[in-house]
């Protein structure tokens, strides 16, 4: 093959590439790109609005029944939640890196960054899936499926294991033996339910079986919290799965050498979507895991 042929193959200018991807009803690649971007932003706006219904339900029920949220949120593991956050934020960074690589035409970098982003998505799903599994095992579910074997949130179990609580908590011991319940948290005893503020001021060492029993008296309708929790995180996880599918599509096209300085709109737009999926989690994490 002559030098010339190779040169024309590899050195198609960005303008030529852009022209090849120009749809018939647009005048310029810039107009096409701007249209796509505006459309994407509008779509992401509708995504926020889709979640807004759930945020609204959250706000209504938290305002009406703060004790449920304070009580039930102790069941969720902030460490696991924080890990999810870390993984998603990192994948957001690698996604931004992928967009940059696409713009600069660095194919290898693009492929690596996309792979890392996909890995982040899977990592999130695995960590969160494990949380779901734990909650399922403890019957910490929505509606009529909520009937935990032990009426005690996670941090109380930690207290129990640390030896400050006396005899009658064999159930807790049993759960402790399963390992995962006591594995994650060093957080001080929680402010729990109506009796919470008083308890929170007591040092861990003087935590008695009687006070734990008082604290363990759970408010009515705790299942509402778990209903909202599963709906919000579930809808979000569906978005993560869709994101992974879209990223895989990008990966295939990246391997096919579709993207470069002249044409990177899909990477840019799906990157925006991924950013919004990240951002929604940024709201979900404190609202669900970090209630005081």
């Amino acid at each position: 093959m002559s030098e010339n042929a190779i040169a024309t193959l590899t050195l198609a200018s960005p303008e030529e590439v852009a022209g090849r991807h120009l749809a018939h009803h647009f005048d310029t690649p810039q107009q096409q790109f701007d249209s796509g971007k505006l459309g994407m932003w509008l779509f992401l706006g509708t995504e926020f609005l889709l979640f807004s219904g759930l945020f609204c339900a959250y706000a209504v029920y938290r305002m009406l029944h703060p004790q449920i949220f304070i009580y039930a949120s102790r069941y969720l593991d902030p460490v696991s939640g924080a890990l999810c956050t870390l993984v998603l934020v990192t994948s957001g960074f690698t996604m931004a890196w992928a967009i940059r690589c696409a713009q600069l035409g660095k194919r290898t970098g693009l492929i690596i960054a996309l792979l890392l982003t996909i890995a982040g998505g899977f990592g999130f799903l695995v960590i969160h899936g494990y949380e779901y599994f734990e909650e399922y095992q403890q019957h910490l579910m929505w509606g009529t499926h909520y009937h935990p074997a032990v009426n005690a949130p996670r941090q109380q179990v930690v207290v129990a294991k640390s030896g400050a609580v006396g005899g009658s908590w064999s159930q807790l011991d049993q759960l402790g033996k399963q390992g995962y319940l006591v594995a994650h948290s060093n957080i001080a005893p929680a402010a729990i339910g109506p009796a919470g503020p008083a308890l929170a001021q007591q040092p861990t060492a003087s935590f008695t079986a009687a006070s734990v029993t008082a604290a363990a008296a759970q408010p009515h309708n705790v299942q509402i919290f778990f209903g909202i929790y599963f709906l919000m995180t579930g809808l979000h996880s569906i978005h993560v799965i869709v994101g992974i599918i879209l990223l895989t599509y990008l990966l295939v096209r990246a391997i096919r050498k579709d993207f470069g300085p002249g044409y990177y709109a899909p990477v840019d737009f799906i990157g925006l979507y991924w950013g919004v999926v990240d951002m929604i989690w940024m709201f979900l994490f404190p609202l669900l895991y970090l209630i005081h």
Binding site: A57, W142, G143, T144, H145, Q223, I224, G227, I228, F230, L231
Partner: peptide
């Protein structure tokens, strides 16, 4: 389907 209870 799930009996989530938000409206119940």
């Amino acid at each position: 389907v799930m009996g989530v209870g938000i409206f119940n």
